[in-house]
């Protein structure tokens, strides 16, 4: 029986620059099952990040037929409603980590929990331990290596128990050792807790960790295997 956590139909996204219109997404259809690990590959500029922004409710599609995230009809939601869905059901991991540099690793996670209205009770420390950074609880991002920063970002994304984690080139700035660490983490959270992950990557090796790989080209998705 299908248990789709994300359903997108006919997603289009255009960008206008004066008279010029760039059709970045051209009718994306995508269904992701709960607990599925999906990798999206494709050349630069094919619209992968835009797709992730639309699926993560960070950007509105220019047109769409269906966009359901964990049962929420996101096309009919106001900005406030989209913010609520994003806060309560979606976790993000970015290529550039996107940690707040003025607060510690733990502070970054606490902040995400606070925004969600969750009590803290030391779970930031616990999730940091899960990603192997128990020694870095009080360090600010500037005092962490890039691999460590990305692991903090993963900890922040999963700490809020999201329905789905969207990862945009999470290994794009990492060396091979840290790349493997990060992919192992995604795999571990996915296997252990049934975490649903949609990961954009250029790296075929990283993509191979996913249950399903989609290829994106010219704003459209094609299944690869």
């Amino acid at each position: 029986m299908s248990d789709a956590i994300l359903t997108a139909r006919g997603i289009c996204k255009d960008y206008r620059d004066g008279d010029r219109v760039a059709h970045v997404l051209r009718g994306i259809d995508l269904t992701v099952e709960r607990g599925e690990f999906v990798a999206v590959m494709g050349p630069s500029g094919c619209g992968k990040t835009t797709l992730l922004n639309v699926l993560g409710l960070m950007a509105r599609p220019t047109s769409a037929d269906v966009l359901l995230v964990d049962g929420a009809d996101c096309l009919s939601l106001s900005d406030r409603g989209r913010t609520t869905v994003r806060r309560e059901r979606i976790g993000f991991v970015f290529q550039r980590f996107n940690l707040l540099r003025t607060i510690s690793a733990r502070g970054n996670i606490d902040l995400a929990l606070q925004l969600r209205g969750a009590a803290l009770d030391g779970q930031a420390a616990r999730v940091l331990r899960e990603v192997g950074l128990e020694e870095c609880v009080h360090r600010k991002p500037g005092h962490l290596s890039m691999g460590e920063q990305q692991r903090v970002a993963i900890a922040r994304a999963v700490a809020c128990r999201p329905a789905i984690v969207l990862a945009d080139e999470p290994t794009g700035n990492l060396d091979s050792a840290n790349t493997q660490l990060v992919i192992d983490l995604f795999r571990r959270f996915h296997d252990a807790y049934g975490l649903t992950v949609i990961m954009i990557t250029h790296d075929a090796g990283c993509a191979s960790a996913a249950d399903r790989i989609l290829h994106m080209k010219d704003g459209m998705l094609e299944p690869v295997e």
Partner: peptide, 11 residues
């Protein structure tokens, strides 16, 4: 449950 997380406290 994830590592026995609980939710108390505030920021």
């Amino acid at each position: 449950l994830l590592g026995g997380w609980g939710f108390t406290g505030d920021l």
